[in-house]
Structure formats: C-alpha cells, structure tokens
Design a protein around this nucleic acid. Sequence first.
DNA 1: CATTTGTACTTAACATGTTAAGCAAATGCG
DNA 2: CGCATTTGCTTAACATGTTAAGTACAAATG
Lengths: 148, 148
Amino acid sequence: MEARLTNPPETNRSLPIALLRAREKVMGPIRTMLSDVGVTEQQWRVLRVLNERGTLDPTEIAERSCLLLPSLTRILQTLEGKELITRAPHPTDRRKQLVTITQAGRQLIVDNMEESRRLNAWLKESFGNEKLEQLLDLLNELDTLERT
Amino acid sequence: MEARLTNPPETNRSLPIALLRAREKVMGPIRTMLSDVGVTEQQWRVLRVLNERGTLDPTEIAERSCLLLPSLTRILQTLEGKELITRAPHPTDRRKQLVTITQAGRQLIVDNMEESRRLNAWLKESFGNEKLEQLLDLLNELDTLERT
DNA sequence: CATTTGTACTTAACATGTTAAGCAAATGCG
DNA sequence: CGCATTTGCTTAACATGTTAAGTACAAATG
C-alpha cells in the first residue's frame, strides 16, 4: 500500500480536487439561479453580507465574503454601476469608505432567497442533514489548522 | 484569534464558503511551492494527470483535472510554450489531439513531489489521518449526488 | 452522396483569483 | 513638528472561471 514512492497519489483522493468538485456540485445550481438575474456568485455573497450586517467598509466585506481586496474593488464598482450598493466616504478616516446595500439590492436578495433555501433543502435531503453537519464540522476544523 | 469568535455562525455553516476556506487552507502552501518553479496550481494538476495516466486527449485531461475546456486550451498552450508537454494529432480522428508530458515535465513533478508529500504529511499529522479520510469520503459522496 | 447532427476543441468576452506595485491618508516616533 | 511606517484601497498584469459562439471534422441520416 505504501509502494507509491515513485507515483503520485490518485487525484480522487486529493483533498484540493475533492474540495473543488464538491464546491462545483453545490455552487452549480446557485450560479444558474443567479445568472438569471445578472449577478455572479461573488456579487451575491457581497450583497448578502451587506444585507445581514448593514453598512460596512471594504476590508470587512472582503473578510466576511471571502474575497481578496483587488477582486472586491472591481466587484464594488460593478455593483455600484448596477445601483445595488452605494458608497460614501468615511466621516473621520478619509482612506475608508462605507458601503451600503440599496433597496434594489435588498429586493434582489428577497427575490432569490426562497430558491436559495430550496437548494439548501435539497442538499439536506439528498445528502442527509447529519452528514452535512459532520462535513461542515470537519471543514471548519480544517480551517483552524496553523502550519508550524 | 478573536476575530473568529465575532464571525456569525452562519458563515461557518455555509457549505460553499466552508469549502472555499478549506480549499484555501490546503492550497495556499502548494501554490507557494509551485510559484517558485513557475507553474500554477492548474498547470500542476494537468501535469500530474498526464504523468499518472500517460498520453491523453484534452477532453479526458479536462475531466480528470477538473478544468473546463476553454481553460484547458489556454493552459495547454502555456505548457507547450514551456516545453512541459507536447501535442500531436490523433492518428485517426483529426479533430482530436494527443497530449504527452515531456521529460522536463516529469522532472518538474519529481522535483516538487517530495515537498508535496511533506505538505500532505503535515495535513495528516495536524488534522489526523482518520478525519482526513472521513472528509474525503464525505466530499466524494457529495460529488455523486444528482439533482432530481 | 448530400445533408444534418454531433463531437472536439478553439476563440471571444467578461468576471474573478492572485501577486505586486502604487497612492493617499493616518499613525507612530524622535 | 517632520518623517518613516502602516493602513486602506486601487491599479496593473497575468492566469483561470464561465458562458456563448465559432470552426473543423466525424458520424448519422436519408
């Protein structure tokens, strides 16, 4: 079993690729839903964060939506162009901005949240709620690892 | 780190984002390693598939390396330019190609496989081999789901 | 054999991922 | 205060993700 010193491990036991495939499985339907209303998966994440947390600065949006700042800069420009968010200067720190979701942005979330919940329900039913929770626990624990 | 404690549980319980974070955790060190030799994570995946399976056509490479064909087209052009692969016309079907890894490509894999194994060993040690296998099983099972 | 349909890429266009560099404002310090 | 450093965001450059359209060839059909 350990005679693989000259050959790399098979890709189906490769964690990076397994994570990629699982993510594609989960995100595929969501992307389809969102493309119908003209927003990407990342734009949707930003809008949801703003809807849940209220006005935020870009750095905090990036952290909460799991995006890097250069990507977020472009996304905020796009969302502003679509009038789904507004940007205002920070009152005391002129380096910062304050980003707020617009009414149209909130409406977009309302219009798609039901379908989003339906997809989540499908996942729970197909995969099993217990396994789903177990998977989330493992993923979250993995995320806490620190390389020594 | 206290920042984690301030995060709402909902982000930790979102499967797409949890998959994203876990993937970043695992891929970060690998990307660092690969950038030192001038190949990307995706190029590395293609080379490994070719090294494992031998000569393949682009469609099968795409399936096995989890890449879409348009991405793969560009990647193969890049890898050919770096002389890490060669492309030959299919003997009977002139629509197809046959892609083969070069000696330089194999050498690149050899040069990095030890470090790759070291990272995998770190993962097994930090996370636990049993949990790792359990996680892989769950991810692979998730990937088999079909939407009804 | 001619036409239609399908296959195997390829190209295009736009969005994001990723790293590095840039810039203005804020902060730390002598 | 004056200046180096840090912070917050932006831009740039290159690679990939994603969808749609295009092209050449093959296979199926009549």
